[in-house]
Design a protein around this nucleic acid. Structure first.
Lengths: 346, 346
DNA sequence: CTGTTAGCGCTTTCAA
DNA sequence: TTGAAAGCGCTAACAG
């Protein structure tokens, strides 16, 4: 095992100087720096993270905590974080949390024993006050993705869920729909509520009362879209459009529509949220609201890094809101054909 | 920061004894053990991984290396590995590799600097001789997922790709298909070739010559399925079935079929491979060959852990082959209706 | 600009 | 069955 001492010996510098070079610290003659670098290269030297962490009382591990969201979501988050980490000495450690209720009280132990330098929290963990309390107590910087509750000392990266959902609802309204069903997400994810608010807001602004029969419970998963579809199809008169809180459930509705011989969008418009891979894979391709999940994770990671490296303090970092975008595809259209066609068919 | 010294002080033992208790080493009086455990608990003590790694000259990090497969694949692999790691002191570090050709020569550096205890390789990395050479050189145990080339000293977890593909082809044959197109995967993934072999084998056994026009290149991605569909639809006479090397591409073919008004499976049967989430989300749901990806990663991780903990040597571990399973859904059926209907339609 | 010294928190000798 | 001492490879503090 080649250590900093070997590099020092070969380059004729002290270990401290080698350390300076390796950490890009100032106060080293360029010539000396060069010599050290060459020795390190020749010896195929690589610093030992464990020793570095121990001596420097800091680690180079960022923990990504998540609880069972859709696979696409995790991958996108992970990709964004990893993209930001590329070229940095930091590494990404995955912490899947089975049940965040049972997770309470364990955060500090994990941080301590894994020596995490920073933490990224995804929903629903990003809105769990107990977990955040523990994090505050631990002192490691943490950034929340898609958190909604503002919290002093804890930056958060999100999109404007309410506004985005309102926009989507208005799009449907603009198409001429009046009976629009809404498929809610898992209520422990606050984004789910924000999206519902946006839906309500848009309807009310248009003078359309919220019909409770048109608001269906769901949990963000494909299967719950399938289930919801059954309820929606049984409604009389049937809504002409469904706004699903995410794409997975929207895909479920589309599949169920195929099975029931209901043409999308001719007889039923379906729109989703996220613009996940799914949305463009099912047929018809789903009109959806793009949420820049990877970019959110990238930004969250960037904030962590700045907190760590540049000594930003959390006070100066306000929440960051990224842009959403309406992606128009093939699953939504005007309603008028739908009802007519339906009655003729029957 | 509470250290082993604090626990020693409180329990009245030496730090060595505390260390013994914490590591479940023998030669500690039960009574003493109890006292130490209580002190540790009372102080909310958690061992520092960095110190442990440094002093013990070993680490508790398992690196998962992957290059750009489909999101579902990564998630499944990750889930399997994480499941096995639950309750163990080991952590999973993610190493996305952009381009495995450029990756050559970097493996040792990464292992050294991150202090990896073990490595899990997924395709196509699991079949790259240069990477495996570096790994051999580094001395850390590594297990390959879905590798095909046998390699002494390196265990591998896989399924019988060739056999599975042969089975699927025979299923199609059994349905009555004679013109069966095959959509290849990315050729750098050896599983891709094994599946093609299985297809050829089955056809030849049935006395059907391989028609090169029916073998289409693909790269495992949805978009390549879309492209391939165009070529397949242009064939005259059109094949009555398509066997796609994975579900992503099969989903592409299904989508294209919808766009071209080709009914699946009535006019064209489509089957995939993997049984990824996609297969049951698109409509019609895709008949596919289930590959237990999570289980493979679980097993790979299990092997690594045994190598590490129980001092297994790689000689005694042969390759492990897990079972595949044909999952019959709605995208494949008998061919006879197809051609008839087509001609009548025209 | 450079080097010396003293740890970081733990495990590993090896002696009691 | 237990403990004292000596590091693991690196960085921090301070002295040159």
């Amino acid at each position: 095992m080649v250590t900093i001492r070997d590099v020092a010996a070969m380059s004729g510098a002290s270990i401290k100087t080698v350390s300076r070079v390796l950490n890009n610290e100032p106060n080293v003659r360029p010539e000396m720096r060069e010599r050290v670098l060459q020795a390190a290269h020749k010896l195929n030297y690589h610093p030992n993270m464990a020793a570095r962490s121990l001596a420097g009382r800091q680690s180079y591990m960022i923990g990504l905590f998540y609880e069972n969201p859709s696979p696409n979501y995790v991958v996108n988050i992970q990709t964004g974080a990893l993209d930001r980490l590329r070229g940095e000495p930091y590494r990404l450690l995955m912490f899947p949390v089975e049940n965040f209720k049972e997770f309470h009280g364990k955060m500090i132990a994990i941080i301590r024993s894994s020596g995490l330098a920073g933490v990224i929290l995804t929903p629903p963990l990003s809105n769990d006050p107990e977990i955040m309390d523990e994090l505050d107590q631990s002192g490691v910087p943490y950034v929340r993705v898609a958190g909604t509750e503002p919290r002093p000392g804890s930056p958060c990266v999100a999109i404007k869920d309410m506004i985005a959902a309102r926009e989507m609802t208005r799009y449907l309204l603009g198409l001429g729909h009046r009976r629009i069903a809404f498929l809610r997400g898992n209520p422990v994810h606050p984004a789910s509520n924000a999206r519902f608010e946006g839906y309500c807001y848009a309807l009310q602004s248009a003078g359309i009362p919220i019909d409770p029969d048109l608001v269906i419970a769901g949990d963000f998963r494909f299967a719950s879209g399938l289930e919801a579809a059954r309820k929606i199809f049984a409604l009389n008169p049937r809504p002409t459009a469904v706004f699903s809180s995410n794409d997975d459930m929207a895909a479920g509705i589309v599949q169920a529509a195929h099975e029931h011989g209901i043409a999308v969008p001719r007889q039923l418009s379906v729109v989703g949220f996220d613009d996940s891979q799914l949305a463009s894979i099912v047929w018809p391709r789903i009109t959806t609201m793009r949420q820049p999940i990877s970019a959110m994770a990238y930004t969250a990671t960037d904030i962590i890094l700045n907190l760590l490296e540049n000594g930003w303090n959390t006070e100066e970092i306000r929440n960051v809101e990224l842009d959403h975008a309406l992606i128009i595809r093939d699953s939504a259209g005007p309603p008028f054909l739908a009802n007519v066609a339906e009655k003729e068919d029957a």
